[in-house]
Computed example of a mutant assay.
Amino acid sequence: MTGWSGFILAFAVFFVSHSLPVRPAVKARIVALIGARGFSLAYSALSVLVLTWLIVAAGRAPYVELWPRQPWQSWVPLVALALASVIVALAIGRPNPLSFGGGRNAAFDPAHPGIVGWVRHPLLVAIGLWAGAHMVPNGDLAHVILFGTFLGFAILGTTLIDRRKRRQMGAQWERLTQTARRVEVTPGGLVRVVVGLGLWGLLLWLHMPVIGVWPLP
Rank of each mutant, 00 (worst) to 15 (best):
Q70M: 14
A106Q: 14
I115A: 01
G128E: 08
W72Y: 13
W173F: 15
V56K: 13
A57Y: 05
H112N: 12
W200P: 06
Q73W: 11
W4V: 03
L202T: 14
P21K: 05
V213E: 14
Q172D: 14
T159M: 10
A36T: 09
T52V: 14
V194M: 13
F39S: 10
V22P: 04
A111Y: 04
I87G: 03
I161C: 00
V144F: 06
L204W: 06
H121Y: 03
V193K: 11
L202S: 04
V56D: 06
A58C: 08
V64M: 10
H121I: 02
L124A: 03
V48S: 14
E174C: 01
R29Y: 03
W75T: 03
L123E: 00
S44Q: 11
E174T: 05
G117K: 00
R29M: 06
L176H: 01
L203V: 13
A28R: 14
A106L: 13
P215R: 10
A180S: 07
Q172A: 14
R181K: 15
L41P: 01
L204N: 07
L197G: 06
V86D: 02
A111R: 13
V79I: 15
F150L: 15
G212H: 09
G198A: 15
G128N: 08
N138H: 11
A89V: 05
S19E: 07
H121C: 03
T158P: 00
A133G: 10
V22K: 03
G170D: 14
G101L: 09
T158V: 14
V48R: 07
I34F: 09
A58K: 05
F147Y: 09
P217E: 12
Y63G: 00
P77G: 08
F7K: 03
P77A: 06
R37K: 15
W67A: 03
L46Q: 12
V183Q: 12
F7I: 08
A126Q: 02
G3T: 08
P77I: 13
P122S: 06
G93T: 09
H121N: 04
L206F: 09
W53M: 09
V185Q: 07
A58V: 09
V56W: 06
L216F: 15
A126E: 07
T179E: 04
D162F: 00
I127N: 13
A57K: 02
H112L: 11
P122K: 05
N138F: 07
L90M: 14
P187Q: 12
A12C: 10
A28C: 11
P113T: 03
E184I: 07
L146C: 06
S99T: 08
G170P: 05
T52G: 13
G3E: 11
A91G: 03
V116A: 10
L176M: 15
G132L: 15
W53I: 02
R164L: 07
T149C: 08
A80G: 07
